[in-house]
């Protein structure tokens, strides 16, 4: 029982618990709050895996921005939004069976794959954030620039889509 194992156990329990509560709550605002718990515990898992920069970005982007954006989406559509149950029960059961089959297949795959023995990580000379920065601006510079174009396009597209349409003369 090492500290790493205890931390992993608590964080994964919070992650899965938040997700399951998210599915089972009926009020959408409660769903978003349990989603925040899930996102923060996933950030903890990232830190546990030695990816501090990704963990901090997870907190900033997901539990900061996306949760608030979802809350805005709920407030702008239906104030006391309730999820009126799931669809017809046969559809529900079919979805459950489908998800169970997917789960079984991937579970079988994970258990039967001979994973490589975890190698001792080479302690790098620079910090995690600096390492990511060097890689992004040397090897991955073109995808990085393409992402900025994607962000600009989605910004403009979201504004145009949500803007009130003017009455055409």
């Amino acid at each position: 029982m090492s500290g790493e194992f205890i931390a992993f156990f608590i964080l994964s329990l919070l992650t899965i618990g938040g997700a399951v509560f998210m599915i089972s709550f009926t009020r959408v605002v409660h769903m978003v709050i349990s989603l925040g718990v899930t996102f923060i515990s996933i950030a903890g898992l990232f830190v546990l895996l030695g990816a501090e920069f990704v963990g901090v970005s997870q907190i900033l982007v997901y539990s900061g921005a996306i949760s608030i954006l979802m809350l805005f989406g709920i407030m702008l559509t239906k104030h006391d939004a309730k999820d009126e149950g799931a669809g017809p029960s046969w559809k529900n059961r079919f979805a459950l069976v489908f998800v169970a089959i997917v789960f079984g297949l991937i579970f079988w795959g994970i258990q039967n794959t001979p994973w490589a023995e975890p190698t001792q990580p080479v302690p790098s000379a620079v910090s995690n954030a600096k390492e990511i920065g060097i890689e992004v601006f040397t090897k991955y510079v073109i995808p990085f620039e393409l992402l900025s174009v994607l962000l600009l396009v989605s910004l403009v597209g979201a504004i145009i889509m949500a803007k009130k349409e003017e009455d055409k003369p």
Partner: peptide, 12 residues
């Protein structure tokens, strides 16, 4: 799998 189930069954 939890996300997939939610995406398939939820109506909101």
């Amino acid at each position: 799998c939890v996300g997939l189930y939610g995406a398939l069954t939820k109506r909101n």
